[in-house]
Amino acid sequence: MTAVTLLELKNLNLTFKEKGKELSVLEDISFTLDEGEFLCLVGPSGSGKSTILRIISGILNQYTGEVLYKGQPNPQPNPNVSMVFQSFALIPWLTVQENIELVLEARGMTPRQRVRTALKYIDMVGLDSFEDAYPRELSGGMKQRVGIARALAVEPEILLMDEPFSSLDVLTAADLREQVVNLWLEKRLPLKSVLMVTHNMEEAVFLADRILVLSARPGHIIGEISVDLPRPRDSRDKAFEEILDKVYSMILSSRLKS
């Protein structure tokens, strides 16, 4: 089976201007995201991980290089791409259900369809009976469930996740990671691929089929590592530790003179 390429980034470069200074943020970033793949980008903070996701989702568009979706220039914004935010980005004056319905309404769905779809995804992330709660009344873990439900509700092919667990405490994060793995494995969704950003390396090995390692700013790709482990994975597994060690070595060898 040959993998179909869903998304391709070619020679992405980006500089920001700050107080008259040019800051190079991305340097020659090229990679592909295949159908059926869970890809993780790891790199230190400030390496441009969020910036890459912003480019793909169409939030940001002053870069050089190419972004191809199924071989064509990536439409801006691409309706087949959806995003989970690090800080949840829920709208405080809308309830859980309204938050999800909002993005469906923006896509022109009828009210009845909206309600049905919203409830379906609220149910899927295990938030039934919370649909009328406001974000301020939810814990961090529950907020991110809403964030995930909202992202899935528009039924994207590609799901972008920007450090989705890094604002959560350790146990909540572990729990939510498991749920994301389950959702991914069930294959009930139209979802084809996931591109996740993190600076937690264990998380990357736990979730990804393939890991791309990014250098510190200006971010460029140092290398990639395939994770050929059956799911669900166990972080105390010998093979797991070996891969983790490989990721560590790759990151550090590029940075540290030994």
Partner: peptide, 19 residues
């Protein structure tokens, strides 16, 4: 983030202002 949500989920300008 609120501005980014509106962009990531493809809100029209009117929709963004209104909501």
């Amino acid at each position: 983030e609120l501005v980014e949500v509106s962009k990531a989920f493809n809100f029209s300008q009117t929709f963004t202002i209104q909501r």
